[in-house]
Amino acid sequence: MEELTFAQALANLSDLAPEIGQASLETGLMLGIGLTAAILLGGPLGILLYLTQPGQLFAHRTVNGVLGWLVNLVRSFPFIILMVSLVPLTRVLVGSTIGPIAAAVPLSFAAIPYFARLVEQTLREIPRGVVEAAEAMGASPAQIIVKVLINEARAGLISSLTILTISFLSYSAVAGVVGGGGIGDLAIRYGYYRFQSEVMIAMVLLLVVIVQLIQFAGNRLAARLDKR
């Protein structure tokens, strides 16, 4: 194998620029769909997990037990196995099992219970007395959820979302390799199968930068929202 100069490596990468752009879009799409599902479905599930705990507003042993068991069940699956298991469902929902939208199905499936647990844990940090004060003032359950729980936990919820985003950036690389596309997939195809190490290194560096940016933005927003 001939020696690769730095200039040559850069030239190779710039030739790949359209693919890199495309891969970034695919990763963004997978993450966007997965995180949206996590927020829209996992968020309410997490709130329900919290509220059905003993001593809380809707304390209910059976409901809490069943929900907790379901969440644990989905979370027990190694992601790659969950993805394979969900192939039939993905085909029904998306009509295909390849592409970023198809890959977003198992990603969403994994993200929902993950975020639900993060939300549940974050809400536990709100002092019970604050919720009780709202009850004493005659607040309805919906008002307590929106105006008290979510508002008091908002900084923690942003931190949870940051953790979720970074975890699922990594999961999306796995989903990408089995047909989802994205940055991880590009790194494997060029960097590993075609021995273009410069592509592998560049993609990992790109992911490092993205993770740092997400964490930075998450920390900043959480700190700004936190008045405790």
Binding site: P127, G129, V130, E132, A133, E135, A136, M137, G138, V148, N151, E152, R154, A155, L225, D226, K227, R228
Partner: peptide, 18 residues
């Protein structure tokens, strides 16, 4: 009816983010 009964607590129970 509770809106007609105010309550004050030992630990204040104010909302920290308001």
């Amino acid at each position: 009816a509770r809106q007609n009964i105010g309550m004050v607590f030992q630990q204040f129970n104010l909302m920290a983010n308001r």
